[in-house]
Amino acid sequence: MPSINATMSGDHRACDARFATAEGAAASGDWTQAAAEFAAFRDAMERHLKLEEEALFPAFEKHTGSAAGPTEAMRMEHAEMRDLFERLAAAAEARDGDEFLGLAETLNLLMQQHNMKEEQVLYVLMDESLGSEAESLLAALAH
């Protein structure tokens, strides 16, 4: 059975690929493609974030007995990412290349350091502590 870490890290990479395509399109001035690719990226990210916030984090919090701590910090960074999604969508709408690429650079750093914390620490702890529960969570993830 694949671990939470393997599954969720794989999802990170899939989102990254969409992000890079959207950014590349914006850099070459192809705004139709940039807007479409960005929308696809944002949808994929929303699914990923929701899955964490509504399934994985609560299960982990139940286990640790606390909603404070690492998951709280992750939720805060999710909110920061969503703000950048909003501004990126507006920049794509306005076809503002400098704004879009500057925001994209910022989002990439925020997203990647966030993923690093999850992949290096949080998912590892989840795999260790959730055990068999992880299986059902991952099954839910597949849908």
């Binding site: 909110a79 920061e80 703000d83 950048l84 909003e86 501004r87 400098d98 704004e99 690429l101 500057g102 925001l103 650079e105 910022t106 750093l109 925020l110």
Partner: peptide, 26 residues
Amino acid sequence: YKIVPFLGWFHLQASVGPKGAPHMKK
């Protein structure tokens, strides 16, 4: 060139809120 603008953005958005913080390339 990654760390300095990112930390600048990161600390600024913590103070002024994400919508008010200029992006890294600014």
